[in-house]
Design a protein around this nucleic acid. Structure first.
Lengths: 164, 164
DNA sequence: GACGGGGTACTCGGATAGAGCTTGTCCGAGTTAGCGTGG
DNA sequence: CCACGCTAACTCGGACAAGCTCTATCCGAGTACCCCGTC
């Protein structure tokens, strides 16, 4: 029985896209179509994800010929959490609906200024999750990928040069 | 902009239900309808969540008159993670689709025996999240709730006795 | 030969359908408690 | 008075719709480049 509530698939695409962008020159923009072809993804939908990253300030978009997307700052300054939140939104996964204030014995209003104990536990877990994602940057992942497959970076750059 | 992908609301209901069940005698079953009324929730749907908990071995269900749900083991033996996974399923939120094997430069098959670096980071974060939820039990939450509102336990028990 | 203007092609950007999942609801199967009857 | 069988009510359990979010797609707005004509 696998989880039915899963993370947006766009998160995976966005992360792979950022890693690829970290390998090209910073002043060079890559069109969404190229990134999509590089990963075997549908171009229009990847474009949507990249727009979300641009809106969040992770990427910088350029219009017109020779345009496309590039990293808005150095890959060591972009955390995995930045990308995840750009796609999924800033809100936390668990949302307390204050059911302690419902039913025949509602918790008094003055006691509700502190968060519900259940919401507090879920919040702690979310913070632990976010902390882990903050400790890893796009540059870290790119370095690991390159270490396990040293040829991929050069191949991608060559392919982008030849088909531009 | 709040997150669109949120956790099932049933998780919150299930946790509140387990806390309430931890306050009544272990050999006494509470019907789903009573638990729903206690929290101001729609009874049929809460029933669905309780079924999931019973199927996961967190609760024990009894049929017929004087039947209902009770905890399958002591509240200190039920972690928050047990409840969350019972509702949401055992699978992890992030699912790697191995897009590194797609496109013009697929990662060689022999290099794919180790997880994708991106999937690895997401997995680490999920483990941190789960560890936090494992460290807190239903008994812990029940004790905290009772500490902040000492009357609620007695009131609920009296209400359950009088309306049975 | 150099400069300016217009056209063109390429890019992003947002608005637009379809599928899957969560949410919410319902009625039937199973079981137990209570009651009536017979010994 | 006690034991047994039956009825009946109550509970869970799974099957069944509606709304919303994610997935996927398309075409229009904007911009930079390139070409051509003119000075």
């Amino acid at each position: 029985m696998s989880r039915t509530v899963r993370m947006n698939q766009g998160v995976e695409w966005a992360l792979h896209g950022c890693v690829a962008l970290s390998w090209v020159a910073r002043d060079r923009a890559i069109p969404a179509a190229k990134l999509a072809e590089l990963n075997g993804l549908p171009a229009p939908y990847l474009n949507k994800q990249l727009q979300a990253l641009a809106h969040a300030g992770v990427l910088r978009s350029t219009n017109g010929p020779k345009g496309g997307f590039r990293l808005a700052r150095g890959p060591e300054e972009i955390t995995v959490l930045d990308v995840v939140l750009a796609i999924e939104g800033e809100g936390e996964a668990f949302r307390c609906t204050e059911i302690r204030q419902r039913g025949p014995f509602p918790t008094p209003r003055r006691d509700c200024r502190v968060p519900c104990q259940i919401a507090s536990v879920m919040h702690d877990a979310e913070m632990a999750w976010r902390r882990t994602l903050t400790e890893r940057s796009i540059a870290d992942i790119a370095a690991e990928v390159e270490a396990s497959n040293p040829q991929v970076r050069k191949r991608i750059c060559s392919w982008l040069d030849s088909s531009s």
